[in-house]
Design a protein around this nucleic acid. Sequence first.
DNA 1: TCTCGCTTTAACGCATTTTTGACGCCGCAC
DNA 2: GTGCGGCGTCAAAAATGCGTTAAAGCGAGA
Lengths: 220, 220
Amino acid sequence: MTALIIDDEIQIRRLLRMALESKGYTVRDAEIGQMGLQEAVFHKPDVILLDLGLPDMDGVEVLKRLREWSTVPVLILSVRDQEAVKLAAFDAGADDYVSKPFSTAELIARLTAIQRRQGCHEAANLQLGPLVLDPAHHEASLNGQPLKLTPTEYALLAQLVRHAGKVVTLKQLLRAVWGPQAEEQSHYLRVYANHLRKKLEGSALEIKNEPGIGYRLDQR
Amino acid sequence: MTALIIDDEIQIRRLLRMALESKGYTVRDAEIGQMGLQEAVFHKPDVILLDLGLPDMDGVEVLKRLREWSTVPVLILSVRDQEAVKLAAFDAGADDYVSKPFSTAELIARLTAIQRRQGCHEAANLQLGPLVLDPAHHEASLNGQPLKLTPTEYALLAQLVRHAGKVVTLKQLLRAVWGPQAEEQSHYLRVYANHLRKKLEGSALEIKNEPGIGYRLDQR
DNA sequence: TCTCGCTTTAACGCATTTTTGACGCCGCAC
DNA sequence: GTGCGGCGTCAAAAATGCGTTAAAGCGAGA
């Protein structure tokens, strides 16, 4: 379980880091919005704690950018307790909103609640016919046999399985697997779709392409 | 979408009912914990708003009983703002905790956030008679049958469906599909209107031309 | 430092899609 | 009747996107 803290106050970062690490989280942090977004792309945290008052950009803006490609749970921290700000944050896709000063215990409790909810979806193995994905360990198996996948292959396949039978657009896939700055690099997909096709060969599964739109994982 | 309110104060129930119904929820309510649990069993609400200060039993106790068999999202309402109570509620499986007096708008926002996490958001499909367009997946279907469209065909058809029954000018269509620099290339439209006509053949839909003005998608 | 595995880049042939050009039709104005 | 402009139709040409393969980077661990 890794958490990402985006906050410019060092005291807050220290406090949260201590609290989270004591609960078994691996913690990363960022002082400014830009760095936070990069961290999110690069390290794919399981939860994000986001301060609204960042020096370089508005926290709600950070959240919006993040939500363009990620559904990671986000808990907002803020000194401001104005309703309009809260509503904007929830509207932008926040999962919870805590005003400073906050109780660390409550924060952790809220975080746990979010994670628990998230867990219902993610901990449950993704399955499609003979293919089973285990998100907790990033492992896969086909017809009961373990299937060796690289991290990128796993991420791509997971996206396809989540929307099995439906087209997932090129943009969605690229954002989810390579991050928002790779939206135009559709050749990545060609290469990796190919890798996966080879590994799924002989099974009832098929990665189909919808020209100009995206890919779809089908069961024959 | 149905919500269950468990609260003994009639004013609160009325207030919440109004707010929720205006957001499209079907609302049921209960005055005491026992009734609330029964309601939950029989009507399986999609979300529960639970007051901690019930006359017959402790709210946390209600939550615990509920969690023995249900994972429905629960938002706690409470006049008490003591940390110990909050922690107990979260520990018992609450999804959020709001202290009275609360802002209705914020409450709804928090509820929406929980529901969003729950994954109950359906894409808003464009529909016109037998034709359905799914913008999230760039997919189309006619009479339930998948309809294969190229990206350009899809974009054009989407424009027409959005303004179904009304004339869309040549300029508007060209700008929306080919970009502003193609405003004069009405030739494109003749070709693609034609493609679409062939693909919509046999359905009740018809792409009509208003000479010199634009095109219109009609239902016969 | 070297090796290995993974990711990124590049290159090519092929299929599909988009663009372009050609032609005939129709309605309207002259 | 004739000429003209907008339209529908068709098909060839150009552009784009895809699958495939292989080689070049890159980083972690030996």
